[in-house]
Design a protein around this nucleic acid. Structure first.
Length: 872
RNA sequence: GCCGGAGUGGCGGAACUGGUAGACGCGCUGGAUUCAAAAUCCAGUGGGCGAAAGCUUGUGAGGGUUCGAGUCCCUCCUCCGGUACCA
């Protein structure tokens, strides 16, 4: 009698049983140790894609294993629900962003539930809900009071098309990430978080993440913070310009100070225009600066050609030697690094060297190589940037340059001409966005009282419902008079509300904290619950958030802690361990038209002859790329689930490659794992009665025959191997492979119905297999668990243990080499000593053949592994 | 340019701290079952030589260390990421 494997019926059945039993709800107080498992929450786009399936399946496996290992697992889910697509939907289809978003959430929640993911849905949050963002507004106000938030004019990436500010990561080669249209620089007054106050801590704390976060992410974070030691040097302006008598410069090479032959300022530098005022160069400088400012920031420097620089007509004084230094404006100098001014040392910096040669400016050598050769400015073909000994440097001549760095800096400091300083590349975080669908920034502008934070009692500042969305963009909030018009909380006079909303990275910077007490109505978090649950023990998400989201969260967690929202005993890092999973890719299909333009196709658009049904052209197969709508290489998870069931879909994404690698989607691969589940199903259902009736323990005293011994060994070894594969290493692909091997062994092991011992072993194997497989393919395992009459949910059954003695083999296969070449294998008892191994190896006929006529010089034996005979 | 990472069968991928390369799966080939097909099951499957035993070659290329190298060291090539005038 064969019961067919019908995944759909049993998957629905177990999902509702888990629900009814509230299996995945995490109690706040529980004697078990806690384990906080979190995957990066999604933007509710409306449809689940394969990348989600992968991310959440990986997380679910970890959560289920931890649960079986006896942890009180919190595995929450929520929605990163603010963002531009909702507004675009409003413009394009006339749906209100809120309606669109909540509808999408409903749909995606349904899809996720069908995946059988063990989330604690009672903790669900959506960041667009006022009960979420009201606390964000509170945090902002507290930060403002503490001086950790401020407002300033800043040049921002401005998209004309979208009428909004873009983050640096949304600008690719000077074009916006969405439409690929130019992004210009525009000056706006913006709100900033003082992330730079935390630069040092964010950097030094990275050391503690070593080994727990991917090396690559740590590297990128370190690079983004960009700490560099240097010296601030004040060049003097005589006479002062616009009241300024100094021009500060940041340099990492104070040892080359005597070699400065000119100075370069960024076009944005506040002194740029003022310096040229009244000089014959004024008009030219004005024109140059104007042009540079309009030019795209990224393109500007690339042709470091003659167009890129201009003389201001002014000079300044080098404080170390009183030398007069001409001041230039150079497009390659960045305003947002250092002071926006660079001292140029052509002899020892390649860029300055190129510049000097182009303009025929003097080159002054101040460091000679340690080997004694003297550099000559006239004949140098490139800058000398390495270490050496100082020359032409007044009292510092003769010093090794490393030492000179400190000495010169000290000298400057003593004379008030400079100071040692540390500089970070990290910038303060601009959080203002000129959009509707975001959390309103809770401040009010009053003509009398200036900037006034909205009192805490008046929070949340909610988004008005009735607003006007227009395709030409601009801020709908700014157009909404009923929102903008308000009274000043301080003087009661007429006032205007801030119409910018927060960057959506603000919401995702603290959601991991909110999950600990998702319905807390006394503050953003309940400190006791934060202490109970944080930090996140395992975080999983895409590598694309390596710096953005992960840096903001690390900052925000500390910010909230320092504002007193939770206690100092909570660790300062929000995410203990991080796993970055790879993308889901699939091969692409395309045709080319006469002009060589590529058109992408879905597999359905290809006919039997391999031609496109659309244009008749022969279809070519491209390389595998990330699944996307535009490339037409996506696979809809629903379709896969309808065809094979959830367990097969999950199992495939876990089996096809290790989590951190990209995954290559293959329909045949899904069929493969589906077949495997079918084998498991048929094995257990067919042996069901025999297994259920077998003794529940294997008699330890009973003598086993070879096949039985081998079977038991396979069972215990599999438990051992799956446990190590899964624990910390997340090698789910090999863990599943081991389950497949065990299944193959079990289906071959056919004890006689009267053989109680054999049946007991079969039972032991079947139960172990279901246990090990259950985190990966939970539904089928629950069903078969029930078939075998096992009590309770397999999801709650403790992770199986193994007997190391049983996992070990009695005899080992020893590799035998002659002169390092494989010549055969011998069977040796497990406890065989090296002498006995050597004897066995030497007795091997093939070995005899290869050492015939030679003398044995040496025999190397590695216990339990191999024997290598050196004979000449 | 600079900084990382990776190159293993037809494919995805295994191989713990140097010790039988290719586990497991896909695909392919042959067979069983079937009126037939699908499904399922069994066997084989890196290349070359061989009837077989076996030999030989093989982890991007070249060199090195070692009794022994996919694994360690050096040089180079390719691909993939990150970053880009950072003073």
């Amino acid at each position: 009698m064969k019961t067919p494997y019908d995944p759909h019926a049993l998957e629905t059945k177990w999902q509702s049983r888990w629900d009814d039993a509230r299996l995945f709800e995490a109690p706040d107080s529980d004697p078990r140790p806690k384990f906080y498992m979190l995957e990066m929450f999604p933007y509710p786009s409306g449809r689940l894609h394969m990348g989600h399936v992968r991310n959440y399946s990986i997380g679910d496996v970890v959560a289920r294993i931890k649960k079986k290992q006896g942890y009180n697992v919190m595995h929450p889910f929520g929605w990163d629900a603010f963002g531009l697509p909702a507004e675009n939907a409003a413009i394009e289809r006339g749906v209100h962003p809120a309606e669109w978003t909540y509808q999408n959430i409903r749909e995606m929640r349904g899809q996720l539930k069908r995946l059988g993911l063990g989330y604690d849905w009672t903790r669900e949050i959506a960041t667009c809900h006022p009960e979420y963002y009201r606390w964000e507004q509170l945090i902002f106000i507290r930060a403002l009071e503490k001086g950790l938030v401020y407002r300033r004019k800043a040049l921002v990436n401005w998209s004309e098309k979208m009428q909004t500010v873009l983050a640096n990561e949304q600008v690719i080669d000077g074009l916006d990430y969405r439409y690929g249209l130019p992004v210009v620089q525009k000056e706006l007054t913006q709100w900033f978080f003082k992330t730079t106050d935390y630069a040092e801590e964010l950097l030094s704390a990275i050391d503690d993440l070593e080994g727990h976060w991917p090396e690559r992410v740590l590297l990128e974070q370190r690079a983004r913070i960009g700490k560099s030691h240097g010296t601030l040097v004040n060049f003097q302006l005589t006479p002062p310009v616009d009241g300024q008598s100094v021009l500060p410069v940041f340099t990492t090479r104070p040892d080359t100070l005597y070699g400065v032959t000119f100075m370069s300022l960024a076009p944005e530098h506040p002194m740029a225009l003022k310096l040229a005022q009244g000089t014959p160069h004024e008009a030219a400088v004005n024109a140059f600066v104007q042009k540079a400012l309009q030019e795209d920031k990224h393109k500007r420097g690339t042709d470091a050609g003659s167009q890129g620089d201009i003389f201001t007509g002014r000079t300044c004084i080098n404080p170390i030697n009183g030398a007069e230094v001409p001041i230039y404006i150079a497009s390659y100098v960045l305003m947002d690094y250092g002071t926006g001014a660079v001292m140029a040392v052509p002899a020892h910096d390649q860029r300055d060297f190129d510049f000097a040669r182009r303009f025929d400016l003097p080159v002054q050598v101040v460091i000679n190589p340690p080997n004694g050769t003297a550099l000559a400015p006239a004949t140098m073909t490139e800058a000398y940037a390495d270490d050496g000994v100082l020359v032409n440097s007044g009292p510092f001549t003769g010093l090794p340059n490393r030492e000179a760095m400190t000495r010169i800096t000290e000298h400057l400091a003593q004379n008030n001409h400079g100071a040692q300083t540390i500089h970070y590349r990290l910038r303060d975080w601009c959080v203002s966005r000129q959009r509707y669908w975001g959390a309103p920034i809770p401040v009010v502008y009053c003509d009398r009282c200036d900037v006034v934070p909205v009192p805490e009692s008046q929070l949340p500042v909610t988004l008005p419902e009735d607003v006007d969305f227009r395709s030409e963009g601009g801020s709908p909030l700014a157009r909404c008079a009923s929102f903008v018009t308000t009274t000043c909380p301080q003087c009661g006079g007429p006032a205007r509300r801030e119409t910018d909303t927060f960057d959506t990275f603000v919401e995702s910077s603290w959601y991991q904290l909110r999950y600990a007490s998702p319905r807390c109505d006394t503050g953003p978090v309940d400190p006791a619950q934060v202490q109970q649950w944080l930090p996140v023990d395992q975080y999983i998400g895409g590598i694309e958030h390596a710096v953005g989201h992960l840096m903001y969260s690390r900052f925000y967690h500390r910010l909230m802690q320092d504002l007193g929202f939770f206690g100092p005993e909570v660790p300062r890092e929000p995410f203990q361990r991080l796993l970055t999973q790879g993308m889901v890719c699939k091969e692409t299909l395309f045709t080319r038209d006469a002009n060589g333009h590529i058109q992408w196709h879905t597999p359905e658009q290809v006919d039997e002859d391999g031609n496109s049904r659309q244009n008749g052209q022969p279809v070519e197969t491209g390389r595998a790329e990330k699944m996307s709508k535009s490339k037409h290489n996506g696979v809809d998870p629903e379709e896969i689930i309808n065809r094979y069931g959830v367990d097969s879909a999950r199992l495939f994404v876990l089996f096809a490659s290790p989590p951190e690698n990209d995954l290559l989607w293959k329909d045949e691969g899904v069929e493969g794992v589906h077949r495997f589940l079918g084998r498991v199903w048929h094995f257990v259902t067919q042996q069901r009665d025999a297994i259920a009736g077998a003794p529940h323990t294997v008699d330890a005293a009973a003598p086993l025959d070879d096949a039985q011994k081998e079977m038991r060994r396979a069972i215990h070894r599999t438990i051992e191997q799956v446990s190590t594969d899964v624990d910390g290493r997340f090698h789910f692909n090999t863990a599943i492979a081991r389950c497949m091997e065990l299944t193959n062994a079990l289906t071959r092991f056919r004890p006689d119905q009267s053989d109680a011992l054999g049946l007991a072993i079969q039972r032991e194997g079947a139960i172990a297999l279901l246990q090990l497989l259950s985190p990966f393919a939970p539904h089928i395992c629950e069903e078969l668990w029930e078939h075998l009459g096992q009590p309770g949910f397999i999801a709650e059954a403790p992770w199986p243990s193994f007997d190391p003695a049983l996992a070990k083999a009695d005899t080992l296969t020893i590799a035998v080499q002659v002169m390092g070449k494989m010549r055969g294998t011998v069977e040796a008892p497990a406890d065989c000593d090296t002498e006995a191994m050597k004897d066995l190896a030497l007795a091997h006929p093939n070995v005899q053949k290869h050492i015939a006529g030679k003398s044995i010089q040496r025999v190397i034996a590695v216990p339990g592994k191999l024997v290598n005979i050196i004979a000449r």
